[in-house]
Amino acid sequence: MTDTFVSRLARMVVTLAIVSVTGFLLLHLAPGDPLAQFALSPGMTETQLGMIRHQMGLDVPLPVQYLVWVKGLLFGDWGRSFRDHQPVLTIIFGHLGATLELAGTASLLATWAGASMGVYGAFRQGSRGDTMMTILSVVLLSIPTFWFGLVFISLFSVRLGWLPSGNIHTVGGAFSPGDYLRHLFLPAIVLALGSTAIWSRYTRNAVAEVLGQDYIRTARAKGLSPRRIRYRHVLRNALLPMITLAGLQFPTLLSGALVTETVFTWPGIGRLFLDSLEYRDYPVAMGILMFSAVLATFGSILTDALYAVADPRLRVSRQ
């Protein structure tokens, strides 16, 4: 714990600054023009395009655009969408709920399934079951998420007709919890698959590591029941590295959500992001980017804090 909270915060600010500059440059320098959507309208003249450009604030030098944007960012004005002129924050929060529901469900599923697989494998190292789990997690990590999406849709929606193939609820229907859950089911599972594999490998290693420790031998020498050893001694210790993984999962889940939402036409942040990239809707794209970067860095700080609370060794050394 040589890192003080302040230096952590400073590092976070530097990281966010780099992210904002890189993201801004990447977006603005990439070919493509936000005005493309207007340029195609019949009767659009150069003068009119110039006016639009001016209103979007795109007619000043790039560094100035950046500074204007950063200033707004700091004071809570994240700009307005080039597409529908809604405030960026309003749009983001409008889509956030759907993504959180999807990613939240998926990460719960993944943590539960992955951790169970990992614990199972670690306690039976070298067994047939353990080998199967290991192979299964490699397989899950090796196949693109969207393929699972397509296959599940083709099986459960198209062939069997059990579950809907997309959207958050039946189009035109009234909202009902059952209908919502049915729509949530497939995308949540697809999004969870990759993380499940990561959790399973990670948990297995963490538990196997703890199982080899001297204090587990001590616990056995004390004549404790296997159950007590497993929960109180092994899992308590294995939990610590798993906290770290939970924090690191955030950007991965978001990337996964991007693709899953596309496959299942789920109206969340991920799809919004892809759309805004396609339309060169800079304010929205940058808004989402910064939003997720802030969440990711907060996630890692939160992880460290949790770790410090959960691990007596750290609690002690801070005294």
């Binding site: 590092r11 530097v14 990281t15 966010l16 780099i18 992210v19 890189t22 993201g23 990447l26 977006l27 320098l29 990439a30 070919p31 493509g32 950007p251 978001l254 990337s255 991007l258 693709v259 992001f273 892809l274 990239l277 980017l289 997720s292 970067a293 990711a296 860095t297």
Partner: peptide, 22 residues
């Protein structure tokens, strides 16, 4: 390490897609 940390902050897909458009 600062650069690496920052790049890891970006969702991979974002990087791939924006870079691809160049």
């Amino acid at each position: 390490m600062r650069i690496v940390d920052s790049v890891l902050c970006f969702p991979t897909i974002f990087l791939l897609l924006t870079l691809a458009s160049f």
